[in-house]
Amino acid sequence: MEGVTRVDGVSCTVGESPTWSAQEGAWYWVDIPAKRVWRLDGSTGASRYWEQSEMVACVAAKQGGGLIAGMETGIFSLELGAAQASVQTRLAAPASGLGEGMRFNDGRCDRQGRFWSGTMFMDMGAARPVGQLYRYDAARGISAPMVSDLITQNGTAFSPDGRTMYLSDSHPSRRMVWAFDYDIADGVPSGRRVFADLTTQVGRPDGAAVDADGCYWVCGNDGGYIMRFTPDGKLDRRVDVPMLKPSMCAFGGKDLDTLLVTSIVSGKSEDAEWGGTVVMLRPGVKGLAETPFGA
Rank of each mutant, 00 (worst) to 15 (best):
E54W: 11
T5C: 08
R6S: 05
F76H: 13
A185M: 12
V194R: 03
V202D: 02
T156L: 14
W116A: 05
D169I: 13
E54C: 08
D106M: 10
W178S: 14
F251V: 01
I264W: 06
S86F: 09
D197K: 13
I264D: 06
G70A: 06
Q153Y: 13
R237S: 00
R128G: 11
M146G: 06
L256F: 12
I32T: 08
P242D: 05
V14E: 05
D169A: 13
G224L: 08
S173F: 08
I142Y: 10
M124Y: 13
G207N: 12
V202H: 03
A46I: 08
L67Q: 11
C249V: 08
G287T: 11
T44I: 03
D149C: 12
G3M: 06
S43P: 02
D213V: 05
A139E: 11
D255W: 00
K62I: 07
V241W: 02
V4L: 09
I226C: 04
D169E: 10
Y49R: 05
I32P: 11
I184S: 04
A92H: 05
M146V: 14
G70D: 09
E290Y: 00
D271I: 01
Y216C: 06
H171L: 11
V87N: 11
G81P: 01
R237I: 00
D232V: 08
F293V: 03
Q88A: 15
T19Q: 09
P145Q: 10
G233D: 10
L235S: 00
I226M: 14
V210Q: 09
V147M: 05
P160E: 07
D236H: 01
W274T: 09
P94D: 07
G45T: 03
V130P: 02
T277G: 15
W178G: 11
G267F: 07
T44A: 04
D8P: 04
Q23S: 15
P189E: 09
L98I: 06
K286C: 15
R39D: 06
A250T: 05
G276Q: 10
L98Y: 03
Y28R: 07
D222N: 12
G276C: 12
V4K: 07
A83V: 12
P160R: 10
P33W: 12
V202S: 05
V56G: 03
A289Y: 14
D213N: 14
V279A: 01
